[in-house]
Design a binder for these strands. Sequence first.
DNA 1: CTTTGTGCAAATTCTTTGCACCAAA
DNA 2: TTTGGTGCAAAGAATTTGCACAAAG
Lengths: 135, 135
Amino acid sequence: MLESHQYLRQFSIKPSVQRSAVMNFLLKNRIHPTIDEIYLALSPTMPTLSKTTVYNTLDLFVERGAVRALAIDEKNARYDVDISAHAHFLCRSCGSIRDIFDLKPNMFHIPDTTSFKIDAVEISYFGTCEKCKGN
Amino acid sequence: MLESHQYLRQFSIKPSVQRSAVMNFLLKNRIHPTIDEIYLALSPTMPTLSKTTVYNTLDLFVERGAVRALAIDEKNARYDVDISAHAHFLCRSCGSIRDIFDLKPNMFHIPDTTSFKIDAVEISYFGTCEKCKGN
DNA sequence: CTTTGTGCAAATTCTTTGCACCAAA
DNA sequence: TTTGGTGCAAAGAATTTGCACAAAG
């Protein structure tokens, strides 16, 4: 939890008990969780935690560049602490998301456009994960 | 409108007045519209049209492969009649979406994975469009 | 007739907002 | 104190569901 505390400072985020707990969860659980998953995971040990705070916290994290908000899941917002260039795979059946690191770096290249300005790329794959394939 | 009628048959979709109107709108307005935009555009000339029907219709179109549902916009579902391989650009400021066709075809290549099964790719760019750049 | 499609209203789900209280500097 | 953070309850927005009626074959 101390790690999370320090980690937040790197992004000029003032650590609070709640913020450190959320960041700690993100760092230890690389599952691209939804707001609800984060809330449900933390509320047992932090009974006073509110979902509003989880929303506020992640908005702040995204604004400060500490986490990426993913657009891959139409249903819920998903968050990723890994801000390096990589793609994602969403299982349509169970909704789990996994990282895809082994792509050519040029896939994440941002095209040079004169008319409009691109500042981010997101590469998403969809399909069925190994667990769901069997069913 | 007759075109839309024929177009739907290609995807084994039984044309109804509503379905043809929705498909006609999609074919003539390549703006990756939301459900609401489609509904608002059609309801003046089809006063009895309901939003439920627009939802049902697009679910059917997606299921039959006649349109693609885009995950690029966190707020609303967006639909694209162009099912060829291409990427999208979302303007964070005004929410407009434009097509990006000039990408290397290998960007849309689906990686061979043994464990899980990929069936679709989506490449999304984010930034500011020319109109919004000025403001 | 029988099956399929449509549309209303209600319900659900996710997210945002307003505001009062708490905590840290 | 004063500023910023938290959390409750209510509001808002997008989507889904249940069901009755209409249309098509």
